[in-house]
Design a protein around this nucleic acid. Sequence first.
DNA 1: ACATTTAACTTGTATATACAAGTTATTGAA
DNA 2: TTCAATAACTTGTATATACAAGTTAAATGT
Lengths: 239, 239
Amino acid sequence: MNMPTQGLPHYRKLYEILRKQITDGVFVEGDILPSENELCTIHKLTRPTVRHALDTLVNEGFIRKHHGKGSIVHKLPKGIGILSIAGTTSALGKLNLRSEILVKPIVKPWNDPFMFKLSETEINSGCIYMERIRYYNDKPIFYDINFIPNINMPRFTSRIFENRSLFDILRKNYQIEIKGGEQKIRAIEANITIAQHLSVKVGHPILHLERKFDTNRPGFFIYSSIYCNTKEQAVFGIF
Amino acid sequence: MNMPTQGLPHYRKLYEILRKQITDGVFVEGDILPSENELCTIHKLTRPTVRHALDTLVNEGFIRKHHGKGSIVHKLPKGIGILSIAGTTSALGKLNLRSEILVKPIVKPWNDPFMFKLSETEINSGCIYMERIRYYNDKPIFYDINFIPNINMPRFTSRIFENRSLFDILRKNYQIEIKGGEQKIRAIEANITIAQHLSVKVGHPILHLERKFDTNRPGFFIYSSIYCNTKEQAVFGIF
DNA sequence: ACATTTAACTTGTATATACAAGTTATTGAA
DNA sequence: TTCAATAACTTGTATATACAAGTTAAATGT
């Protein structure tokens, strides 16, 4: 479970330490972190490095900084943090999240029309397609359809996905890291397929996210179409 | 229209310059910005300062950086960038956005229950309430209800809001800057009120955003409940 | 002509230092 | 006691420098 910090840059190690202290409750909402100079002394780092770590925490919403006062721990997200990238705020509700493969990865041509504009290379190589349902507290909340360009992805369709994060597999087996992305959000009515998968009536309002993920491979993007039942659980995000 | 850059820190000035060049089309998607060292020479700055400016552009989704290659201009948001804070990506569709006051600012007690947890101070001071409709291409897209704590906000209810951004007034008249925030997102069915304001049928799926904005005043937050008709226009965001 | 090595770029990380500006606690005068 | 000035914090901005690591283009060898 713990992230190995060896090999990581110093600022990243400090970030992981502080992040864990916040998520573990060592620091709670409203607490003031040790000052930058104190962190310098404790971890034998210089202020720019410490500030780099704190800046990362600010960007991910764990803390807010106030000029002249200090770094104040921010309220932790209560809902499901799908609006942020995996491994950050979304990890918080992980214990109650279970995923189930609906359609195992298969190689297919891209849908036409597709939700985002595709490059020639992407179109020509086809995509790896998979469907998944994610349960939160044993209720189906997310029904997502994923599209991965079939470029240099050996043996992908035969890998075992149950209980493993898609992004984890991409990182460990293919050295693909998610760097960010963009998304389009709509409210739609559930059609028959969505209704069945999410256990709602046809016509039920559904949150629809269309996402495009940037990776460390230039020109290589991952696409997801996610349908959420937000009846009981809202989707949460910081900005 | 132009932002005065005098008085701003150097990194911010460079940020504004590059941001404008991107939004004006001097640099288009896929273009590589001048290297950090070139920007240093051009603007007579050092690399940490230049990097500070570039980091800000990265955080707001204008560029992506690739180790060893350079800073690549990212695709500009096409939809309505309400997921980011005002003045950044949201400014792009501004020309087609028109707002109309539905309920002029009035002092009221807070709704009970309220969408976010309120502090004692907030509850005791009451709130300034206002409703607004925003049109995109002359169609009503957003119906938003805003709550501002009635703490040290003299003459707020008598100010003129037409065609002026709420955040602009807060900044210019009360020195309140929005620093970020959090939001909850749901898909709901339009009730009679929402249906009327957004010109849709009752039961139409509506995107509901509940937002809490952080400001530079510690403990001072602004709250908005926003209903969006996403039938034709999706809401856009980067992450 | 081709493949390999090298050099010249690029961004990433890190240190050391200095001063500005906002906040809080202390000190001192009335 | 009360208020104002001061000192001692805090984070914000900025410079100067160095090396690591990824990428690309040029030079070199076969």
